[in-house]
């Protein structure tokens, strides 16, 4: 079967210049990138020194400039322990399960100055908004002085599958378990997302400070090593040893 003749190419012409098209495309990409940057850029958070509660945070125990949630107020003379964690992070759940009580008891006894930064980056990873909502709920509980118990209850109530998150009803159930008294006010606070801005700022501030994951524990500004973190996740008395070894 004879091959059909190949189509005759059009007569020589100068097509659109590659450089022009390339330039236009490159310019368009740069423009879009700049627009995306301007639109999506998180509002920068001040990183001033916020050693003490000033009452200007979003909830009573919240430090200024999204510096975190303070537990107790042991002052500046004791080691400052700063824990960065995300409510949906399984390793954070393990850390809290094993050493959570050691941290909060030491803080309430005045042995350490304890601060929690509640991160919410896992929402983006997992495709839900449970970290943000749980962190907001924890601050709602803080309004009624129940942060420590609520915080522990949420971690104890982590879903078996990372990423399943919590419903508002579950977040309210945790409040009942944690002894939040005015459930109505709590629910209103959860539904309104009263502290969402503060929570978002805590995440931004974590990025600004170079804390790129969770859980992270800093003592007097110094990050604990992998070995120390593993000790905290396996031995409830590890905190005492780590503090004593400083």
């Amino acid at each position: 079967m004879p091959r059909p003749p190949a189509p005759v190419p059009p007569p020589p012409r100068s097509g659109p210049p590659v450089a022009l098209i390339g330039g236009v495309v490159a310019l368009a990409v740069v423009l879009v990138a700049v627009v995306v940057y301007v639109v999506l850029r998180p509002d920068p958070v001040g990183t001033g020194d916020n050693a003490s509660i000033t009452g200007s945070g979003s909830s009573p125990s919240a430090l200024r400039d999204a510096g975190g949630i303070r537990v107790g107020d042991a002052g500046d003379d004791v080691p400052a322990v700063h824990i960065y964690e995300d409510f949906q992070c399984p390793w954070c759940g393990l850390l809290e399960e094993v050493s959570g009580e050691a941290f909060t008891e030491a803080a309430l006894a005045g042995d350490i100055q304890l601060t929690y930064t509640l991160m919410s980056f896992l929402d983006g990873n997992l495709g839900n908004d449970s970290s943000l909502r749980a962190a907001n709920a924890a601050m709602c509980a803080d309004e009624q002085g129940a942060f420590v118990d609520y915080h522990a209850t949420v971690f104890a109530g982590q879903p078996p599958n990372e990423g399943d998150g919590w419903t508002d009803e579950q977040l309210t159930g945790f409040a009942e378990d944690a002894g939040v008294e005015d459930i109505e006010a709590f629910t209103a606070c959860v539904e309104a997302g009263t502290h969402n801005d503060y929570v978002t700022d805590m995440q931004t501030r974590s990025n600004q400070e170079g804390v790129s994951g969770s859980p992270r524990v800093f003592i007097d500004g110094e990050e604990l090593s992998n070995e120390q973190m593993q000790a905290l996740m396996s031995d409830p008395t590890a905190l005492t040893g780590i503090l004593a070894g400083r």
Partner: peptide
């Protein structure tokens, strides 16, 4: 996921925030 995307870059500890 802008937050996560920024965080991924931060994790390299190569650049200023």
């Amino acid at each position: 996921d802008p937050t996560g995307s920024i965080q991924s870059v931060v994790a390299y500890r190569l650049f200023d925030y």
